[in-house]
Design a protein around this nucleic acid. Structure first.
Lengths: 70, 85, 70, 85
DNA sequence: CAGGGCTGACGTCAGCCCAA
DNA sequence: TTGGGCTGACGTCAGCCCTG
């Protein structure tokens, strides 16, 4: 093989690899963004559940002490 | 490892945990709601207790289907058997 | 001013701006990484609190129905 | 806006929320613990009630410093409902 | 209005890790 | 063992928002 064809082959291979990694990086960023949004949503959900659980715990606690005093 | 490297696996793991915790959360909330409702009755009799359909009375206070109510039905005061399915 | 000096001035200004934005990007990535780690830690904390709250709610509920049967 | 653009502000906001929620969490846990402890006593008297130092008895059951316990130990029959929420 | 601080998104390089 | 998929980290460009 002539060195000219070798250089062309190497260049084409490199460009193909760059193209693949380019798209892969784009997909990776997309998944990372989705993951962070998932984390934020999860935090919000857990926060609401915590508040509701604390409220229910307060209510049941006062109901318990009221039953106690009866 | 519980801390995967791929984002897709992390997302799947978080969705799974969130589903389990939400299920447990809704379950305990319903159970506490049922407990509070039946706990309010004994000291004072309500006209609903005179109704021939106490199940309908309870279901009027609570929303969806209550599979765990059977355990509560173990209370000797109230009889609550399956409505046959 | 000679166009030669103008070109040098522009090049120096551009290089300075690139340098600043380079360090800014590095700090930005650092803060973003810290933020994501903060989110994960927060999720773990809220998860533990949720479990403990649910357990306490179960205990208090059973205690309540026991008091009810007495 | 509650959703800042800068990461530092997001971190500060999350730390603030986490501190508040942790405080509320620990508070309600201690209160429920106290409630459960004092709720177990009335049906049966314990020898600890004959002790000249009931506060010390309670502190033996509970961990940290409990400023509200003093009022409860002083008047066990009072109702303790603070801010309703 | 122009200028600068931060961040979103891109392409590239380097490296990890698993299936082939 | 090794090639390829994913991701971490970098530098650069473009754009937003705030301050001068």
């Amino acid at each position: 093989q002539s060195p000219q064809q070798m250089a062309e082959e190497a260049s084409r291979k490199r460009e193909l690899r760059l193209m693949k990694n380019r798209e892969a990086a784009k997909e990776c960023r997309r998944r990372k963004k989705e993951y962070v949004k998932c984390l934020e949503t999860r935090v919000a959900v857990l926060e609401n559940q915590n508040k509701q659980l604390i409220d229910e715990l307060k209510t049941l606690k006062e109901l318990y002490v009221h039953k106690q005093n009866d | 490892m519980s801390n995967p490297r791929k984002f897709s696996e992390k997302i799947a793991l978080h969705n799974q945990k969130q589903a389990e915790e939400t299920a447990a959360f809704e379950r305990i909330m319903q159970e506490v709601s049922v407990t509070r409702v039946i706990g309010m009755q004994p000291p004072r009799m309500t006209s609903a207790h005179l109704s021939p359909h106490p199940q309908a009375y309870l279901r009027s206070y609570l929303g969806g289907s209550l599979p765990n109510v059977n355990q509560i039905a173990a209370n000797p005061q109230i009889e609550l058997h399956h409505q046959g399915g």
